[in-house]
Nucleic acid binder design. Sequence first.
DNA 1: GTGAAAGCGCTAACAC
DNA 2: GTGTTAGCGCTTTCAC
Lengths: 339, 339
Amino acid sequence: MTRRPKIKDIAERLGVSPATVSRALADTGLVAEPTLTRIREAASALDYRPNVSARNLRTRRSMAVLLVVRDIGNPFYLDVVKGVEAAARAAGYAVLMGNAENDPGRESEYFDMLRDGHADGMILMTGSLPSTPEFRRRLSPNLPVVVALEMIEDVDFPHVQIDNAAAARQAIAHLVGLGHARIAHVSGPVPEVMSIRRRDGYRAAMHEAGLPIPEGYEQRGDYLLQSGRDACRRLMALPVPPTAIFLANDEMAFGAIHELRRMGRDVPGDVSVVGFDDLYLSEAFSPPLTTVAQPRAEIGRRAMGMLLDMFGGGSAPKEPVILPTTLKVRGTTAAPKMT
Amino acid sequence: MTRRPKIKDIAERLGVSPATVSRALADTGLVAEPTLTRIREAASALDYRPNVSARNLRTRRSMAVLLVVRDIGNPFYLDVVKGVEAAARAAGYAVLMGNAENDPGRESEYFDMLRDGHADGMILMTGSLPSTPEFRRRLSPNLPVVVALEMIEDVDFPHVQIDNAAAARQAIAHLVGLGHARIAHVSGPVPEVMSIRRRDGYRAAMHEAGLPIPEGYEQRGDYLLQSGRDACRRLMALPVPPTAIFLANDEMAFGAIHELRRMGRDVPGDVSVVGFDDLYLSEAFSPPLTTVAQPRAEIGRRAMGMLLDMFGGGSAPKEPVILPTTLKVRGTTAAPKMT
DNA sequence: GTGAAAGCGCTAACAC
DNA sequence: GTGTTAGCGCTTTCAC
C-alpha cells in the first residue's frame, strides 16, 4: 500500500460503509462495539489519517485561527503568541501567523483570509483597521474576531486588554512614593490609543499627587530605542531636568538609560527610570529595569478562549475584558538625591 | 445576495460555464477577451472569493507551510520567523505556527500535520527528531522538509545554518587579539550538536593561539540566564580566574555580566564578555554586548526558498547551506588589565 | 447501529 | 476558447 489510505480503503477492507468508518473515527458514539474496535485497529494498522481539506470542505470549518500582530519581529508579542498557541492547540486549533506591518492593505488581506475559509476566527493585535469606506462596509459586526492587547475604536469586536491608564498611574505612584517630584514622561506615538491612555494615566497621577508637569516634561517617542535616547537628551537639557522618567515602553527605557550613562548620569542614583511591558530580558538588564508588566500570556489565552466561545455559539462580552497589571519594582528606581 | 457567492453563481449570471470562470479567475490565459473582463467584473461586483478548502481538496495543495520552533517564546527565533513569513507571503503561502517545546511527541504531531495536508512543507528549527523506530520508519527521505538554524544528524533533510565552530573561533580570535590569554567558555547544553560545535570552535581557536584551557575553564550551561550567572560564579572562584569569558549565547552572557557586577567586577574593565546570537536588544544592553551575529532573517528566507524550490520539483542541496556570521564588537570587550 | 446517496466548491481532463 | 463531466475525500442527512 503505497498510496495514502482513505476512508473508503478501510471500509472496503472491513466490509462496512464509509459512513460507519467516519463515525467510528470521529468518536460519535454511534458505532457499536464489535465494529468500533475493528475500525480503529484497521485505521491504525493502515496508518490512516483524515485529509483535512476534504473535511474542512465538508464541515465548512478550518479548525484554524489567524493571529495578526503589528510586527512579528517585535519581542513584545512573544508571550501573547505563546498563550494563544497553547490555548489553540489545547482546543485542537492550528494557528496561522499574520504580520500586518502597520499596512492597512495587509490588514484587509487578513480579513479576506478569514472570509476565504483559511481560518474560523481571528485575533487582532494591530491597533487599527483599514479606514476605507469599502472595507468598513464589508465589516459585518458579528465576525469571529477578537482584539487583544491593543484597542480599536469605533468597531465593536470584543476586546481583551489592560487598563493602560491605571497601569501608568501605578508607575507614577511608585515614583512619587520614593519622593520624586520632577517626573517626566516619554510617550508612544500619540495619537495612537494606547499611547494616549498611558500618557493620560501619567497626567492623572501627577495631578492626583499635586505635582506640576512643567513645559517640556512630556516628550513624544515612537516606542523605538532611538526615540528613548533622543527624548532623554531633550529632557536632560531642560533648565530644570527631571529626577525620574516614565517611558511608555521598555525599549525606549533602555535607550534612555543608555543616554543617561553616556552623559555620566547614574541610574538610579541620579535619575530613576520606569518602563512599560516587562520584555523578556528586562529583568536581565543592568540594572534590572523597573517596569509595568502586563499578563501577556494570559491575554493570549483569554483572547483565544473568547474566540472558542464564539465558535461554540456563545456571545462575546460586550464590555472589554480588563486584565490586571503588575508593577515590577527592580533596580532602576530609587529615592531622588537630596537637593 | 446574502449567501456567499460561488463560482456557479458567477457562471449562471453571465451565462458561461463554471470552468470558464475558474480559468478566468486563475489567470490561465485560456479565456478570451470579451469574456475575461466580464467575469472579472462580475467577480468583483459580487465580491467573490474562492473557497480555499474546496480548492485545496481539488488541487491537493494547501499553499501553507509549517514553521516549527523549539520554543515560540524565545526571542531568538523572531528574525527567522520574520524572514520565513516574508518569503512565504511573497510566494503566496500562509505560515502555520508550530511550537515543539522539546517534546518529541509534538514534533511527531507536526509531521502528521504535514501528512494530513495542513501544509505543503515544513521548516524545522528543533534540533532533534523523535527517535522511536516507529517514527523513523515512517520518515520518507524526500519529505518537503528543511532544517534551519539547527542541525539534525543522521537524517538527510536539507539544512540552512551557520558554521558554529568558525563563528566561535572568530569570537576567540577577537579576545586573543585584544591580548587575553585566560579565556573561559560557558557552553550550551552539551551534547546538543550546536553546543558541541561552538565549544569545539573555542577549543580549536585556543589551540591555534597556543593558549591552554586550564581545569575548570569550560563550564556547561543551558542557554538560560541563570546558568550564565552560575557558571560565571564558578569561573571567578577558580584559583586563577579568566580575564575573558565567551558564552554560547547572549542570554547567558547577560547573566554573567550581572554576576560580575554583583561581585564588583567591571565589564569590560576587569573581565571581557562575548556572547552569541545578537538578540534583538543586545545592542541596547549597557554596555552594548559584543557578540556573534547570525543572519537570522536570511536563514529564514533561504529555508523558505529551498522549500519553494522543492515544491517546484527542484532538488534540494545535498550539502548544508552555510551562511556567514559577523562578530559585532561592542562594549563588553577590552584589553585585559596589566598584571 | 449501519448503509446509500448526496454534496461541500472547486479544478482538470477531455471533448468539440 | 468554452462547455461537459467527473471527482478530490470527507461528513451527514435520510432511510431501514
